[in-house]
């Protein structure tokens, strides 16, 4: 991509060269390209290498190998130039808990060399924008989780960065806090900021990102838009819970998919199958069950879980890259 905000080629990183670490690479030849002004989600389970990737991109960690550029600058050789152009929202709120919200923003503004007056003005502006004006003088340790996250986000936007990294921005937040952060991220995109966010939630990637890279064991195993990925992973799924586990076998035959695509959970009397046409599948299954005289306790359509995406993208033991 000619106009890339982030380019990662063959990135490798193994922790603990001189002791510590388990010798397993955190990044194992990871490739990634993020277009300018887009939102890109890096989706993967714990330990997939998401945080390592973000820390390398944000110049906090040196890669062992690979060509890695952010906003047109090499993260190792031109770290300073990169730092001028990025914002970082880490997994844990990177704030001074003892200081007030305004004091935090002023501190980071001064360290961005805005000067005293502009740092103060910028702090007020951001407090206003993130709806924190009333609590600006309160110590951060008295903030709620959602407020803390918003202040953290404000702190990473002091200089209107070209590229913003969000490392699991909503982990540990309640649904309301999550919605607040999502709204903030959406409002950023209008401003032309490139956003790279990591997440464990397919739904979050789906909601926010233009493109998604699925990572596992330090590599990208699938890459595409949310629709492309969903199509590749069978898209939505239908879950059917029967009243009587004895009917499970008969019900499998009634689902509009090949028999081996259906997962059966006898304990929960549950059948689950991928569907392409949501409504047709739902009405078809309801009718078929009725005609067969099988009683269902619950029937629901849902998006595939991350586990199911992984099950589809990776073989049980052969985890090789699958192009979408």
């Amino acid at each position: 991509m000619a106009d890339a905000a982030i380019t990662v080629e063959e990135a490798r990183k193994t922790y603990g060269g001189s002791g510590g670490g388990n010798g397993k690479p955190a990044l194992d030849g990871l490739d990634l390209t993020v277009g300018r002004g887009t939102v890109h989600a890096v989706l993967g389970p714990n330990g997939a290498g998401k945080t390592t990737l973000v820390r390398i991109l944000a110049t906090l960690l040196r890669p062992d190998a690979g060509r890695i550029e952010v906003a047109g600058h090499d993260v190792v050789r031109e770290a300073y130039a990169v730092r001028l152009r990025i914002g970082l929202l880490g997994q844990h709120a990177a704030l001074d808990e003892e200081l007030g919200g305004r004091q935090n923003l002023e501190l980071f503004g001064r360290l961005h060399h805005l000067g005293a007056r502009r740092a103060r003005a910028r702090a007020d502006e951001l407090l206003e924008r993130f709806d924190l004006s009333d609590t600006g003088s309160k110590a951060v340790k008295q903030y709620s989780g959602g407020m803390r996250r918003r202040l953290d986000l404000a702190a990473s936007l002091i200089t209107e960065p070209e590229v913003l990294f969000l490392d699991e921005p909503t982990t540990g937040l309640d649904p309301r806090g999550r919605a607040e952060v999502w709204d903030s991220v959406r409002s950023l995109v209008g401003g032309g900021t490139t956003v790279l966010l990591t997440t464990q939630y397919l739904e979050e990637a789906d909601q926010l990102a233009d493109r998604i890279s699925v990572v596992d064991a330090g590599r990208v195993i699938a890459d595409g838009t949310a629709d492309e990925l969903k199509a590749a992973t069978g898209g939505d799924r239908i879950d059917v819970v029967l009243r009587d586990a004895g009917h499970l076998g008969a019900a499998v035959a009634l689902l509009p998919v090949p028999k081996d695509a259906v997962t059966v959970d006898t304990d929960r009397r549950l059948l689950s199958a991928p569907v392409t046409d949501r409504m047709a599948a739902l009405t078809g299954v309801v009718r078929a069950l009725q005609e067969a005289g099988i009683e269902a306790e619950d029937i629901a359509l849902r998006r595939p879980t991350l586990d199911e995406v992984f099950l589809h993208l990776t073989g049980p033991d052969d985890r090789t890259k699958e192009a979408v």
């Binding site: 820390r55 944000a58 110049t59 906090l60 300073y80 730092r83 001028l84 990025i86 970082l88 880490g90 997994q91 844990h92 709120a93 990177a94 704030l95 001074d96 808990e97 980071f108 360290l111 961005h112 060399h113 702190a155 990473s156």
Partner: peptide, 12 residues
Amino acid sequence: KGVIDRFRSMPM
């Protein structure tokens, strides 16, 4: 608290 990470990611 991760605040050192923020300092280190800034052009200071």
